[in-house]
Structure formats: C-alpha cells, structure tokens
Design a protein around this nucleic acid. Structure first.
Lengths: 165, 165
DNA sequence: GGTGAAATCCTCGAGTG
DNA sequence: CACTCGAGGATTTCACC
C-alpha cells in the first residue's frame, strides 16, 4: 500500500454565494463536527423536518459549497508518522500548472499551495520516517526545474474542529 | 457568523498499529473518497458482509486510526476566499503549548503546525479579504511574544483525494 | 417547508469455521 | 476471533400537500 487517493484540482477565487442562510451554516457546522451525522439527528437539533435538512444538504452540494465528505485519519497510527512542509522555488518562467503537476506526481505529497511571492509553492508531505522524507525531497527537487527548497519538519499540530478522541 | 468549530489537540508520535490489514486499508480508501459511503456499498465493493465492514470501521475508530468524519467545504463560496500560511518566530523561551494556545485563540486560524528549526510555527489561516488578513496577522503578532512573521498568500491549491466536483 | 410510505440501511444477537 | 445470516428498528428518499 501507499498513500492512496485520486487526484483533483480545486479552483480558487469562486464567487461567494449570497443565498446561504443561518440554517445552512448550522447544517455545515453540524457536518463539520461529524460528517456522518444522520439527517434525523440534524433535523432534531435544527428544528426542521428530516426532508428539509436533506434538501439543504443536497442544495449545498449542487451549489458546490459542500464538495464532499471524508474520513479523518491518524496517519501516525498507520506508520506515516512524519509530516513536513517544503517550500519550493522555481525559475520565473515555470508555469503554475507545471508546479502543481510535478509536485502532485509524488505520491507522498498531500497538498500543493501555490504562493504569491517567495517561495513559489508550499508542499505538504507525509512520510514514514526521515529517510523517506529525504527521498521525497530529492524527488521533488529533480521533478520540475526546482531552484531551491526549504523543508519545515512538523513537530506537532493542532487543527480546528478535529473531533475529540 | 464566523469560522465555527470546536477545538482539540492532536497528538503526534503515536506508535503504529501493526494489526491493520489490506481490507482495513481498502475500507479507509473508500471512506477517504466518500466519508458518507454506506456500509452496504462498501461491503459490496470489498466482497464482505455489511456487518463485517461495520465491525472493521468500529474497530478502526476504537484503535484511533479513524478519528472522525467531516464535510469538505469550498470556503470561497462562503465568502472566505483568501487563504494564507504565516510563519511565526518566537523567543527561545516560549513553550510550544503557548504558541499553539495563542494562535488557536484567533478564530481565523485553521491549523497550527509547530516546527523544528526556523520558523517556530506555521499557521494556516482563512479570511474574507486582504484587509481581514492584515487584521489577523496583527492579532497574531500581538498575541504571544512573537518576534517575527512572514506570510505566504495562497494563490491556488491542490489536494490529493478531494472529490471531483 | 411538512407528511407519509416504500425502499434501503443499520444494528446486534446467534450460529459457523 | 472474524465471518455470515437474519430480523427488527432506524434512516433515507421521494412524491405530494
């Protein structure tokens, strides 16, 4: 096994949707806390019928506000205990699309952020150990025409909204 | 409304769990693709009974491999179109716990990563606009005894495993 | 947005190798 | 110990008000 997962681009700069009301935000908050909440439980908390809540969720999906659901995993428990951010610098001629493509080709890369200014990209990677991290960084350096890297090794992390274990 | 969400610490360096087999990884892969998949659908894909898949998921939760489920949201559509990473530097005397606490106090902070070396922390923030970003950075600077910041403005992002819209 | 009924799904105990 | 089966209850889904 490896780092599984299909691949997709997320577009930025979409226009904000005005027709999102307080109830929609309530639905989103409940689903952020637990993405597998039943419609019936949410309906009870919100004070709406089950069908109404389902329609809200369906609509939020159609609007593209909800892009999907996923499971939260403790990767350390799976043996992927090391997390790092690598800053990448490229020649001024490198198009953003190539930056993303070459980085996404590396299986251990979890996310790619293209940046205004210096560095040109910030890459979130997850690896088994430090030797593995070295290999990944080497692969990133060789992939595109990278002119420089700086890697920030994550010691600990905190995330808003992660459920209490 | 603001950036909703409860708060919790994620511990790192947990020992890897050996008794995770291929079927468990298959379950995790299916749930990463769609966290609301039904047990029946997963059972069919894996070639197991519904009850067996449920017990796998229950066990993965008990082991702490699965820490929860959540919804994926396009925040730009909610009017939170700007994303940035801010590197924070602290005096050598500042304990990690205080770094996390002061950053997490700022509602716009989505995640805090403490770092080995320089900088001392990397903060992921999400804001409505650039003026808002400025305010958040100012608040971060004043919060702890921050000695320096550098903010990386995100132009675009790619995430492994985000579902295709 | 609500209601109700049919289809589907979840849950858990019992039985099997 | 992990799996399958099956029944009862809960949930989802959809047409209609």
């Amino acid at each position: 096994m490896g780092v599984p997962g299909s691949i997709c681009l997320r577009r930025k700069g979409a226009f904000s949707v005005p027709e999102i009301d307080e109830i929609d935000h309530h639905v989103l908050r409940l689903l952020r806390e637990d993405g597998r909440r039943t419609f019936s439980e949410m309906a009870e908390r919100i004070g709406l019928s089950v069908a109404a809540v389902k329609r809200r969720v369906d609509r939020l999906r159609e609007l593209g506000v909800i892009t999907g659901f996923s499971v939260q995993i403790d990767y350390a428990k799976l043996g992927w205990g090391i997390e790092a951010f690598t800053e990448l610098r490229y020649p001024g001629t490198t198009p953003v699309s190539e930056i993303i493509r070459t980085a996404a080709d590396v299986a251990e890369v979890q996310a790619v952020f293209t940046i205004a200014g210096d560095p040109d990209a910030l890459i979130h990677v997850r690896v088994r150990d430090l030797g593995h991290l070295q290999k990944v960084i080497d692969r990133l350096r060789r992939a595109g025409d990278v002119t420089g890297t700086k890697t920030l090794l994550v010691l600990g992390s905190w995330t808003r909204d992660a459920p209490v274990p």
